[in-house]
């Protein structure tokens, strides 16, 4: 048993207070009646109502979701392929360059990625809009997906694929009917990560978006620069709640699966 001292308890308390208090304050003040955000004037949900009246925000939200959906889907396909290549393809010409390109966007400052893609789109004369944001987000999100999938693939028992080949699968069939179902949890979490990254991205979207394709972070950013507003508080609260529910559900499901697997194993050992 590990010793759990008062020091540990204190640092956990303060640590989590630091992490969660700002968000808690945000949530509380989103129900503030007054427009003066720092003065509490009673409970009200009027800012939520106003938020849902605000067409500019709703449009931006819709654009953001579309962009996130398409880019995370594309990024998942490309990132899974990239991960599979990195782990399974062995040597091929230009492997060094490929692995460099896969990892570079992870450490590349967003301003550089955004700038370079914008200059590229201008050079090939593409009008900026949803398409260009999707392309940009796909490019950096596929690298995150490939990292997630790679870490699953390296622990994947290669003999499962060989067994499939041995039992008459073509290599593609083996990938589809054995590898893919087994790495699916990693692929799904890669997709979720890509989706969140895309939802969240301000810098790259600002560079690559056109006048008619403002995303939610761009909208929030320009509103926030002028100071705190209760609508943004309401919007933030909604986003925080969605994420919280999502993460807690996901972790409950995965913990349930782990507990069930352990119980199964115990049962199997007893016959």
């Amino acid at each position: 048993m590990r010793r759990f001292s008062w020091f540990n308890a204190t640092s956990l308390t303060f640590g989590f207070a630091f992490l969660y208090l700002p968000m808690l304050i945000l949530i509380i003040y989103s129900f503030n009646e007054s427009r003066l955000v720092t003065v509490w004037a009673g409970f009200s949900t009027q800012w939520y109502g106003e938020l849902f009246q605000n067409e500019a925000f709703l449009d931006a939200a819709w654009v953001t979701i579309k962009v996130a959906f398409w880019s995370s889907t594309l990024a998942t396909i490309l990132g899974t392929m990239a991960a599979y290549i990195m782990v399974r393809a062995g040597r091929f010409r230009g492997r060094g360059l490929f692995s460099g390109m896969i990892y570079a966007p992870l450490v590349m400052p967003e301003v550089i990625t955004g700038l370079s893609l914008l200059l590229f789109f201008i050079a090939i004369d593409v009008n900026r809009g949803i398409l260009t944001i999707v392309l940009a987000h796909t490019t950096f999100a596929m690298c995150y997906v490939s990292v997630v999938v790679t870490s699953r693939l390296v622990t994947f028992d290669k003999s499962l694929e060989e067994a499939a080949l041995d039992l008459g699968c073509t290599p593609f069939d083996a990938f589809r009917s054995v590898t893919l179902p087994i790495i699916m949890p990693a692929v799904v979490s890669g997709w979720l990560l890509a989706f969140t990254l895309s939802l969240d991205d301000l810098v790259i979207a600002t560079f690559t978006s056109g006048p008619s394709s403002t995303t939610l972070p761009i909208k929030i950013f320009s509103a926030v620069r002028l100071g705190v507003t209760p609508e943004i508080n309401a919007l933030s609260t909604i986003m925080i709640l969605i994420v919280t529910v999502g993460v807690i559900t996901a972790s409950l499901i995965s913990r349930g699966a782990t507990i069930k697997a352990k119980a199964d194993e115990r049962k199997a050992e007893q016959g």
């Binding site: 992490l19 945000l26 955000v37 720092t38 969140t196 994420v243």
Partner: peptide
């Protein structure tokens, strides 16, 4: 999970929360 949760919430919102504070 409590440490990872903020990572999934919007970066922008987490920075924004501090303006008011």
């Amino acid at each position: 999970m409590l440490v990872i949760l903020p990572f999934w919430t919007s970066f922008l919102i987490r920075v924004y929360a501090w303006i008011g504070i």
